[in-house]
Design a protein around this nucleic acid. Structure first.
Length: 643
DNA sequence: GTAGGGTTAG
């Protein structure tokens, strides 16, 4: 007969079992199969009646890598008399799940626990219950739980309080959160005068972090920053909350500044810091900083798993290095749907439709089902490469075979795909038949196609709609004006300009960034504010001369002004990306590829010029515009002039 | 047994 006994940690050991067949304890279970075998033995021996054993089983199914909440729940419900520890375990499992139904279930279960009455909740019960309320934004229940906490006398427990504050913060009730916060901070500070109680101090920082997080969630960065500056001490989490808050709300420069200040303050970035700051680096295109992060992870033994890996793949891709993106991707020990989406989107952005399609199929082969985002990636790849039939086939496969509901982003790709291939009527028909209202992005895609194919009739119509939909967006005015200009209709151009002036709409200034030796340099149109402006100017003149000698003629069609040709040619010379290239050429050695990030789309003239410049100066130039990458090399561009 | 994270049409 098998004997069962416990070690000092309450972990069950099966020393009499042949180790090749059965795991010796729950902690040595590697797979769900191991656990099921062990569980079967527990049932057979009746040992499952022991609450500690049952709780260990629940914990394993809930928190190990073999996450199986259904299994945990069934073990729990089979217990005739679960003790408080078991209740706490199942409540925590449900509360921390990402599935919203589980949070509701946790609350129902907690209600059951109270009604049952055999077990009283303890101080470990409430954090989970509060977490469930917070995650599901269930304020009404949250307030009831607050009442119970007072009734049971746990309103002095730091874990309970921090979860209570967090619950109010997540329900956007900052006043309630503040009243608890202020009370606790005063209490804690009072007791800390006598003796520095480390745990209390930590608890204090946690509360500050939660409050900062609350302001960040509400988009109130000023209050968040004030608290951050005021707090008596900051933990790595305090920095992470600020960095991720900035990064997720489009304040990329602030996120990066915070990250750099963090290092000045001698706080070591951790895994979450890296994952939080990487998207900001991607958006700015700060490759050197991105590389530093990658190295830092390696040096500090921070594991590059699927999550950090996805962020790195995206960073390298958005910073212009598709080769490094692929290298990181290939070396990852595990890849999930997001990792695959990141590499597929990377190929799409860089114009390698073939690779995007290959990796899409590799993803399927690896047993990862492509989700809606994967289809956005693949459709955008088809659109950038002009693969109309392939795009159509992916779209219909997604709808008819996979049964995914297309989102507006999918329609956006299709409108772009059809429009740019010159099938303007089909694109317009698709917009009319979409199940949702078209947004400005959809109309902009069609307007771009009208401009490309010089369909002024449709262009005017679409621009009209856009001006109504997004009246303060300069894009539609500029596109319409450019369209008239390309037809030489200067009167109509003047009309659009008048309208813009009347509504005080200004064209977004073109802006380019180039990172040279780790420092980001920003250039605006006609920018002469750089310390090396004189040398840049001389370089621009030289470029201009060499371009002309190589047969280049300025393409002034897209110049916004109705000015004489010479003036327009000069305006073109000072587009921000050209200034950035000039600066790059004088600042770096020939083998150094220039990587430029531009806020708007690259214009046709700059595109033609950069192709020639890559030939004349034997320089690889990679430009990331608002939409995609252009790799200029040996006189041609990776987009094959289709963008 | 407290806080924090990656991909997405133009």
């Amino acid at each position: 007969m098998n004997s069962v006994f416990y070690n000092s940690n309450g972990i069950v050991n099966f020393s009499a079992q042949p180790s090749s067949v059965l795991p010796r304890s729950i902690t040595s279970c590697k797979t769900a199969r191991d656990l099921k075998q062990l569980h079967a033995v527990f049932i057979k021996t009746g040992q499952i009646q022991d609450p500690l054993t049952a709780a260990e089983v629940i914990r394993f199914c809930a928190f190990s890598s073999q996450r199986n909440i259904d299994y945990a729940r069934s073990v729990f419900h089979q217990m005739p008399e679960p003790n408080c520890f078991c209740w706490n375990t199942i409540l925590r499992v449900l509360a921390e799940s990402n599935n919203e139904h589980h949070q509701s279930e946790a609350l129902m279960l907690f209600r059951g626990m109270l009604c049952d009455g055999r077990v009283k909740p303890n101080r470990f019960t409430f954090p989970s219950v509060l977490k469930a309320c917070a995650r599901a934004s269930r304020l009404r229940e949250g307030k009831q739980v607050h009442g119970l906490i007072v009734k049971f006398g746990f309103d002095g427990d730091e874990f309970v309080i921090s979860n209570l504050v967090r619950m109010y913060v997540m329900c956007a009730l900052m006043e309630d959160a503040y009243s608890l916060f202020c009370k606790s901070v005063v209490d804690f500070d009072g007791s800390c005068q006598m003796e520095v109680d480390k745990r209390r101090q930590d608890g204090n920082v946690v509360l500050w972090n939660i409050m900062i997080d609350g302001h960040v969630r509400l988009g109130d960065f000023r209050s968040a920053r004030n608290l951050f500056d005021e707090m008596p001490q900051r933990s790595v989490v305090s920095w992470n909350v600020m960095i991720s808050g900035y990064a997720q709300n489009g304040h990329f420069i602030e996120a990066i500044n915070m990250f750099q200040e963090m290092q000045i303050s001698n706080i070591d970035p951790n895994y979450v810091t890296l994952v939080s700051v990487l998207p900001a680096i991607s958006r700015i295109g700060a490759l050197e900083l991105g590389k530093w992060i990658h190295l830092y992870a390696g040096k500090n033994k921070i594991e590059i798993d699927d999550v950090l890996g996805s962020a790195l793949v995206d960073m390298y891709s958005k910073c212009g290095s598709i080769e490094k993106a692929l290298q990181v991707f290939e070396r990852l020990p595990q890849r999930n749907a997001i990792t695959w989406n990141a590499i597929i989107s990377a190929f799409a952005m860089h114009g390698s439709a073939e690779d995007a399609i290959n990796y899409f199929h590799l993803m399927e082969k690896a047993g990862v089902t492509p989700n809606d985002v994967a289809y956005i990636g693949i459709l955008s790849a088809c659109s950038h490469a002009g693969l109309v039939e392939e795009g159509r086939s992916f779209f219909s496969h997604m709808v008819k075979v996979v049964g995914l509901q297309p989102r507006i982003e999918h329609y956006g790709c299709m409108v772009d795909l059809l429009g740019r291939a010159g099938r303007l009527e089909e694109a317009e028909a698709l917009i009319k038949n979409m199940p949702m209202a078209p947004d400005d992005v959809i109309w902009k895609a069609l307007l771009g196609a009208c401009k490309m194919h010089k369909n002024i009739e449709m262009g005017e119509r679409v621009a009209e709609i856009l001006m109504e939909l997004a009246p303060h967006d300069s894009g539609s005015y500029v596109a319409l004006s450019n369209m008239y200009a390309s037809l030489g209709n200067w009167e109509a151009v003047a009309g659009v300009r008048m309208k813009m002036k009347g509504m005080d709409i200004r064209k977004d200034p073109g802006c380019s960034w180039v990172e040279i030796h780790g420092i980001i340099h920003e250039f605006l149109v006609e920018d002469d504010s750089h310390p090396r402006a004189k040398e840049i100017q001389a370089m621009l003149e030289e470029m201009s001369t060499k371009l002309r000698l190589n047969g280049y003629r300025p393409n002034t069609l897209e110049v916004f002004l109705n000015a004489d040709e010479e003036h327009k040619a000069r305006a073109l010379q000072y587009h921000s990306e050209k200034i950035a290239v000039a600066f790059g050429l004088i600042s770096t050695a020939p083998q150094y590829p220039l990587k430029i990030v531009k806020n708007l789309r690259i214009c046709e003239d700059c595109h033609a010029s950069l192709k020639l410049i890559s030939l004349i100066y034997k320089r690889r130039i990679i430009v990331r515009d608002r939409k995609r990458f252009h790799h200029f090399d040996h006189g041609s561009c990776s987009c094959m002039d289709y963008w």
